[in-house]
Computed example of a mutant assay.
Amino acid sequence: MRILLINPNTSEEFTKRVQAIADRYAFPGTTAVAMNPTAGPRSIEGIYDELLSSPGTLELAINHMNDFDAFVIACYSDHPTIYALREITEKPVLGIAEASMYVACMLGYSFSVVTTNEEWEPLLRDAVRHYGLADRCASVRSTRMPVLALEESSPAETTNLILKTARQAIDEDDAEVICLGCAGMAGMDKELQAALGVPVLDGVVCALKLLEGLIGCGVTTSKKRAYAQPGHKPIIGLPEVFGTVYR
C-alpha cells in the first residue's frame, strides 16, 4: 500500500520530520511518502494560513491522486482540504488532529491537546466539537510557542515547555491522554510519555496506522451525500488541474 502524507505548509524541515516518523512506523508492506507544496505559508497558525495553504495542498494531492491509496493531511487542525479531498476521491483521507483524538478516546476517557501558539486554542476547541468529542476533551492548552519556534529552539527547551504544559493538563484538567497538537512535534511522543506516565499521541503516527487498517480491510470514503463527487462547472482564472476532478 502507498500513503501520501502532505504537510500543508512549505517548511521542508517539518516535512522531513513527518517522513522520519513514517519511515519508523510504517509496516514493511507500506510505502509512506511525505511531501509539501512549493507555494504557500511556511507555517500554519490560524484560519488565514489554512486557506492560503489549501490551493497548493489540493494541487499536490490531485497531481498524485493515482499514485497513492490514501492521504494524510499532516496539519494539526480541522484543515479544509481534508473534506475537499474526501469529495474528489474514494480513497481514505485523514487529518492528524482527528486521528489522534479518536485514538485518544480508545486509550482513556479524557484527553487534552497540547498545541503551539495561543491562537490555536479556540480553533482546536471548535475542531473537538466538530468531531463530536467535546465531552471527552479535558482541555486544549498552548505552550505559547510559535510554530516555527519548533525549528529554532533547542530540543531540550521545546520538550521541557511541552512537558510543563502537558503536566498542567494532567494535574489540573484530569487529562488521561495527551495529544501533541502540531506536526512539528512529531517524534517527541515517546520521551514525553515516559516522563508523564500517560499515553502521548503523535497525530502523524495515529493517521498512518489508522489508514493502514482502513486500506487493509478494503473500505473507502462514502460518496453518498456529504462527500459526493462535485459536479462539473466552469472554473475561471485558476489552474486547469482543479477542474480535472469534476465528474
Rank of each mutant, 00 (worst) to 15 (best):
K209T: 01
S222P: 04
D189N: 15
L208D: 06
A226Q: 11
G216R: 08
V219P: 06
L210A: 12
Q229H: 12
E212S: 04
L211K: 04
A207T: 00
G184H: 13
K190M: 11
E191Q: 14
K209L: 12
S222A: 09
M185N: 07
A186P: 12
V198M: 10
L196S: 09
G197N: 04
G213S: 13
G213R: 09
S222F: 05
V200K: 01
C206D: 02
L211S: 06
L211G: 12
L210D: 01
V205L: 07
E212K: 08
L201V: 09
T220S: 14
G197D: 06
Q193V: 07
A186W: 12
K209N: 03
C217D: 09
K224W: 03
G213M: 13
P199W: 08
P199V: 09
V198D: 00
C206M: 07
G231T: 09
V198R: 05
L210E: 06
A207L: 04
T221D: 02
G197A: 05
M185V: 12
Q229G: 00
I215P: 03
M188N: 14
P230N: 09
G203Q: 06
D202T: 01
E191H: 06
L208R: 11
K209A: 09
L214W: 10
A226I: 06
D202H: 02
A194V: 01
K224N: 09
V198H: 08
T221K: 10
G203I: 04
G184C: 11
R225V: 13
L196G: 01
I215V: 15
Q193A: 15
Y227P: 04
V205M: 06
A207D: 05
L214H: 02
K190I: 08
G213A: 12
K223A: 10
K209D: 10
G216N: 12
L210M: 13
Q229C: 06
Q193L: 06
T220K: 15
G231A: 10
G184F: 14
L211E: 05
G203K: 02
I215F: 02
G216L: 12
A207G: 05
S222T: 12
C217V: 14
V219N: 02
G203C: 00
G216V: 08
A186Q: 14
T220R: 15
A195I: 02
M188G: 10
